[in-house]
């Protein structure tokens, strides 16, 4: 099971990112652990400097922008 973190201090762009990821996961019907991470400590540990960011299994895949649904699908290997 993938662990997906959406990181951001709670701005509108971060919420939009969470919505995109949620939508992809739900419509594909896959089981993931989805976390909305607002702690700056976690961002610093990961080395994230621009938000919103998406981290899958500890690897930064998106930083500083809202991803498209298709990108998230590809990242999770959903065709």
């Amino acid at each position: 099971m993938h662990r997906i973190e959406v990181l951001g201090p709670g701005c509108t762009r971060c919420k939009e990112t969470l919505r995109v990821v949620q939508h992809v996961v739900e419509s594909a019907g896959i089981q993931v652990e989805l976390v909305k991470e607002e702690s700056y400590a976690r961002m610093a540990t990961l080395g994230i400097m621009s938000t919103p960011a998406v981290v899958v299994d500890g690897i930064i895949v998106i930083a500083g922008r809202i991803p498209k649904a298709q990108e998230i699908r590809e990242l999770l290997g959903i065709s």
């Binding site: 951001g8 201090p9 709670g10 701005c11 762009r13 971060c14 700056y40 961002m43 610093a44 080395g47 994230i48 400097m49 621009s50 938000t51 500083g64």
Partner: peptide, 15 residues
């Protein structure tokens, strides 16, 4: 550099 004020804190810490 692209910047949005909600990134100010992570950027500050990173720097």
């Amino acid at each position: 550099t692209p910047f949005c004020s909600c990134s100010a804190v992570p950027l500050f810490i990173g720097f």
